[in-house]
């Protein structure tokens, strides 16, 4: 049974430019989004910054109104039935904001328990359980201004669960965390899903979505590009291989030359500490490495690797195709 359904969901924002002659400009954050998420699912929404992930999370969690279209949670309208929806959903944003820094972790949870009208005897039992779940029992009575980023993020999860919601919206929950803290948090999220919670997770980390979600939608510029299981999405790039060339100081013109090669499907550049990693998607078996190295003649190349594509490559290809169309 679907617990989240959106139909042709749109959201636009108005901004103004200029001082004397102010001009209004409309920005489309969501452009006709259709989604259907089943109870108990771990659903992942992938997309670059500005794709509309946060906007859709805010709309579904009743803190932002859509411009048009419909969004229903538990069959209830997110505009008209906020009072019925709010006690049944939990909301967790990434980053350090969203907590009362001058209060202890325990007091933060206690305050939100009151706001969610959790019975005192239930809250008394649940708060220590949640602190245990997120590994903060020992620091529960300290003011959270002294917490590390990872600890605050874990407290966010506990806060989102204080009223035992049926659906948990997680908007980039691991953003800014060190790899160890992010791994711990992913483990917590996985356990919550196994305990029966429906999870709506947004991220721009492909491996995170790949590791956690049963179903994934990829968003770009306010639209859903594709929606399927992670393994099915990888099939988008099944007949491709990825050539990775690590080099130093590649000018944009040479990258453009590689990109314009007729056999190249997509190119992505990752900035490493000292070097750059060019990831080129091309048909499997095309043996184009020599041609790419010829284009990069004169550039110091550190390493060349050819590998099988991942979900991240599928994402790069889909978002890249969309950008080309635009």
């Amino acid at each position: 049974m679907p617990v989240i359904v959106t139909e042709n969901l749109r959201r636009t924002y108005e901004t103004t430019t200029g001082v004397i002659r102010r001009k209004k400009k409309e920005i489309t954050a969501l452009d006709g989004v259709d989604l259907s998420i089943q109870s108990g699912e771990m659903f992942g929404l992938l997309g670059p910054n500005g794709a509309g992930k946060t906007t859709i999370t805010r709309i579904l969690s009743t803190v932002l109104l859509p411009t048009s279209g419909t969004a229903k949670v538990f069959g209830l309208d997110v505009v008209k039935n906020t009072r019925e929806i709010r006690p049944r959903i939990g909301l967790v944003f990434g980053g350090e904001r969203g907590l009362y820094w001058r209060l202890s972790g325990y007091d933060n949870l206690q305050y939100f328990a009151d706001l969610y009208k959790v019975q005192p005897n239930v809250a008394k039992r649940r708060i220590p359980e949640l602190l245990e779940l997120v590994g903060l029992t020992d620091r529960a009575n300290e003011r959270i201004e002294g917490y590390s980023r990872g600890m605050k993020q874990r407290l966010h999860i506990a806060r989102g669960l204080i009223h035992d919601p049926e659906i948990l919206f997680l908007d980039e929950p691991t953003i800014g965390l060190d790899p160890l803290a992010a791994r711990d948090l992913r483990e917590v999220i996985r356990n919550l899903n196994q305990a029966g919670k429906t999870i709506f997770l947004t991220s721009h980390y492909m491996f995170e979505i790949d590791a956690l979600c049963n179903r994934v939608a990829i968003m770009s510029k306010g639209k859903i590009l594709i929606e399927d299981t992670p393994s099915a999405l990888k099939k988008v790039v099944a007949n491709l291989e990825v050539v990775e060339i690590e080099c130093f100081g590649v000018p944009q013109e040479l990258v453009a030359q590689i990109r314009s090669h007729p056999a190249v499907e997509a190119v992505n550049i990752e900035r490493l500490d000292q070097s750059q990693l060019i990831q080129i998607q091309a048909p499997a078996g095309a043996e184009l490495v020599k041609e790419f190295l010829a284009i990069l003649e004169g550039i110091q190349v550190r390493k060349v690797v050819t590998r099988q594509p991942t979900l991240e490559d599928a994402y790069i290809k889909l978002v890249g195709d969309e950008a080309k169309k635009a």
């Binding site: 805010r58 969690s61 009743t62 803190v63 009072r83 709010r86 006690p87 959903i89 909301l91 944003f93 980053g95 904001r97 969203g98 907590l99 009362y100 820094w101 939100f112 009151d114 706001l115 969610y116 009208k117 806060r159």
Partner: peptide, 13 residues
């Protein structure tokens, strides 16, 4: 400033 306004508005209170 603390980013709690939307979170408290998301509660039933």
């Amino acid at each position: 400033r603390t980013g709690t306004l939307s979170l408290v508005m998301a509660t039933p209170t």
